[in-house]
């Protein structure tokens, strides 16, 4: 089974160190890890560093990955693209990078399967430039899955989706992680979705990791006050899942000041 561990990981933007000292316990294939934190905290930077798109100190320790570092697939935040390409071609493109021109029946069968699984078969022959933000996001997930990841890094994959689609996509990703032994790291702003779907949680603020553990251990009123600067409670629903109930904006605390410093 694939495992990933981050050891003193940092990242440079140009000459500036914008992320430092991210060390985590081992995450195993089948687990969903939520990466949370305020805007510009360094979540995307962390993913780009893990994917090898940024340089920096520290190590990404992989074990059991059949494809090695190529098994790490990063799905960036959604950006509009108006290429004259169909959705089907754009997914094929993700799969065929670095390989021959010819397209096998196996390639096409995999894409058909992914389209059906994500319920976007009806979009297959639409141009990518014609899609709505939500549709683009699901197509982006399809492109990432076409690369058959072993470690999957998804940067805000549900930010443009309605509530139904968010639950649908996150349930699907968790099922996929469990079934295929993929370790899925998801950067997400919705803490309730993190509490509902994640097995583990990493909190990034000001370019550093400030907490790591199960969502219940990590998402606490103290963390919400210090990192997100809101007064909030965690209440459990009848199914035992925690929900963040926000009461208002918090006054500056000593801990928040120390994170900011």
């Amino acid at each position: 089974m694939v495992t990933i561990r981050l050891d003193g990981l940092g990242a440079f933007h140009g000459a500036r160190l914008v992320l430092s000292d991210v060390s985590t316990p081992i995450f195993r294939g089948g687990e969903v890890v939520a990466v949370i934190g305020p805007n510009a905290a360094g979540k995307s930077t962390l993913f780009k560093r893990i994917a090898g798109l940024l340089k920096g100190p520290g190590r990404v320790c992989l074990e059991g990955a059949l494809k090695g570092p190529d098994g790490i697939c990063y799905m960036p935040q959604d950006t509009a693209a108006n290429a004259v390409l169909t959705v089907y071609e754009s997914i094929l493109l993700a799969r065929k990078q670095g390989s021959a021109w010819s397209v096998s029946d196996g390639d096409l069968a995999l894409i058909d399967g992914i389209l059906a699984a994500l319920s976007i078969s009806d979009l297959a022959f639409r141009n990518v430039g014609e899609l709505s933000g939500g549709q683009r996001q699901v197509v982006s997930i399809a492109q990432t899955l076409a690369r058959e990841p072993e470690i999957l890094l998804m940067d805000e994959p549900t930010s443009a989706l309605d509530l139904h689609r968010q639950v649908e996509v996150l349930s699907f990703m968790r099922g996929l992680a469990r079934k295929h032994g993929i370790a899925v790291l998801i950067a997400i702003h919705d803490l309730n979705q993190a509490l509902r779907f994640a097995d583990k949680c990493i909190v990034i603020a000001e370019g550093r990791m400030v907490a790591c553990g199960t969502p219940e251990e990590v998402v606490t009123p103290a963390l919400l006050r210090d990192v997100y600067r809101v007064e909030a409670r965690i209440e459990r629903c009848s199914r035992g899942i925690g929900h963040v109930m926000v009461d208002g904006v918090a006054a500056e605390t000593a801990a928040a000041a120390s994170i900011a410093a």
Binding site: Y88, L108, A109, L110, I111, D112, G113, I114, L115, A116, A117, L118, S119, S121, A124, L145, E168, V169, S171, F172, G175, L176, K179
Partner: peptide, 13 residues
Amino acid sequence: MSSEPAALSAKHG
């Protein structure tokens, strides 16, 4: 949404 990506409606696309 299915949890089985590789098994559904293959031939059409």
